[in-house]
Design a protein around this nucleic acid. Structure first.
Length: 440
RNA sequence: GUGGGCGUAGCUCAGUCGGUUAGAGCGCCAGGUUGUGGUCCUGGAGGUCGUGGGUUCAAAUCCCACCGUUCACCCCA
């Protein structure tokens, strides 16, 4: 079997089994995705967040305004198209859509602070590489309607709790404050003034950044550039007193919660909407894309999207693909695919009919039941039962129909017992430990 | 957009100073057991050797182009 089609570059299929792509990256099986998603939801629930689901398709203008015209995302990474006069974009991130939804549906009228989480795919037309895809999956939260430092600290704590819960050690949390836009602009000027004399010593990329977005020069990994930056003015010197006090409070609260972090005055964010507190979680195990998650405050975004009053807010976004990379590196425990409680093998047409009917009843009773759907030999059915790791196999043939007793084989020991049809359901529920509740 | 790596069976890979009908392991299917899996034995299916062109008596192997993919830069989750 074959096809000339294949999945779009930068996307990947999530299959029942794990596999490795051509670059050697392990693509986790669907059961692991379910496990990670379930864990994320569990953590979110404990922190008392509600889920929000927004469309994958958004108006292009929302993203352009919300994320920022000057950003790489808007300039060259949007999957955007026009149809019947409407400009669509596949969302490249979820914060702008959530704020749009918050404003559109007047969620502030629910009262209090809105604490929302999301999980879902995003799209960016970048060159794919390890840990970076064109369709990727993010989860994250947004806390809207408060500028309290506790919201900042709680956002970070929630982020950390997810990685903690999943058993990913050795992460590093860096934090910084960007202050208010006016002070940041003043700082950018100061930084440019400081760096310009060194322009000849800077790398091509840093020189380009100096032109376009001086803050990004702070990102440099080159040692000699770091030396130049050592004496550069820092953002912290430029932020106003309120920003400074807010930042101090956030740090105190983090310490109270036992969250370890390092201050990084060079931490800046790529998206325009960030203000005040900003943070990033990275893992040394990840390679070039070391950022597991990142976020910060975006107190002005609502107004950028047309709100007549400000909505102070903070959130984080995390990459699922990178989370899996970290999970692999940490060799963290993950559950496998759920295996059937029982496989029912049928011999002959009459038995097949009985099995087909009985399977349905046992499933209704809460058992995970497997059976053959193509009339294969008993040998083949047993092989299938073994492959699926079913602890029990029922064998139903003419003999069993005659006696109205099922042959129940315990696969590990190989022992077989006869169980009257009437007791089958209860015996199986008892033996497999299912209580008739839902299947995971 | 720029640079490097890699494309042979479902998977992992051998095979390349050009030379019968392109191989192995695993997996899959079947038989050995006309009603019994996991071990073992036997057999089988499965390949446009990424695509196209060129060189040659002869190309998976040499040359060129293209395509795909991957890693990195850039940027970000």
């Amino acid at each position: 079997m074959s096809t000339s089609f294949q999945n779009i570059k930068g996307t990947f299929d999530i299959l029942p089994d794990a596999y490795t792509d051509d670059g050697g990256t392990r693509i986790a099986p669907s059961a692991e995705w379910r496990y990670v998603e379930r864990t994320v939801r569990d953590v979110m629930q404990r922190y008392n967040l509600d889920e929000i689901r927004t469309p994958v398709l958004e108006p292009t203008e929302l993203v352009a305004r919300g994320v920022g015209e000057a950003t790489d995302i808007v300039q060259k990474e949007m999957f955007a198209f026009e149809r019947a006069g409407t400009q669509y974009v596949l969302r490249p991130e979820v914060t702008a859509p959530v704020v749009r939804s918050f404003l559109q549906h007047h969620l502030d009228q629910r009262g209090g602070v809105q604490k929302l989480f999301y999980i879902g795919p995003c799209f960016r037309a970048e060159q794919p590489q390890k840990g970076r895809y064109r369709q990727f999956h993010q989860f994250g939260i947004e806390i809207l309607g408060t500028d309290d430092a506790r919201a900042d600290a709680e956002t970070i704590a929630i982020m950390m709790a997810v990685y903690d819960e999943l058993g990913i050690p050795d992460t590093r949390l860096r934090i910084n404050t960007l202050g208010t836009p006016d002070r940041r602009d003043a700082y950018v000027e100061a930084l440019r003034d400081y760096l310009t004399p060194y322009a000849d010593d800077l790398s091509d990329t840093s020189r380009r950044r100096l032109e376009r977005n001086p803050l990004r020069v702070l990102d440099t990994k080159l040692d000699h550039e770091q030396e130049i930056l050592a004496d550069a003015p820092t953002l912290l010197d430029y932020v106003n007193e309120e920003s400074r006090a807010h930042y101090d409070r956030v740090q105190r609260l983090l310490s109270d919660l036992g969250v370890e972090y390092v201050e990084d005055p060079h931490l800046v964010r790529g998206l325009d909407y960030y203000t005040e507190t900003t943070f990033e979680l990275e893992s040394p195990a990840l390679g070039a894309q070391s950022a597991l998650a990142g976020g910060g405050r975006y107190d002005r975004l609502a107004e950028v999207l047309g709100s007549d009053e400000p909505v102070p807010a903070i959130g984080f976004a995390a990459g699922m693909e990178r989370l899996f990379l970290a999970l692999d590196a940490a060799d963290a425990d993950r559950p496998g695919s759920p295996e059937p409680d029982v496989f029912i093998a049928a011999l002959g047409e009459e038995a097949e009919a009985w099995v087909f009917r009985t399977t349905q009843e046992l499933r209704a009773a809460g058992l995970q039941v497997a059976l053959d759907l193509k009339g294969r030999s008993l040998k083949a059915q047993m092989r299938e039962a073994n492959r699926q790791n079913a602890p029990y196999t029922l064998i139903i043939g003419d003999n069993e129909l005659e006696a109205e007793e099922a042959t129940v084989k315990e696969m590990e020991s190989g022992e077989q017992v006869d169980v009257p049809f009437g007791e089958l359901r209860d015996v199986l529920l008892d033996r497999t430990g299912r209580d008739g509740a839902q299947v995971a």
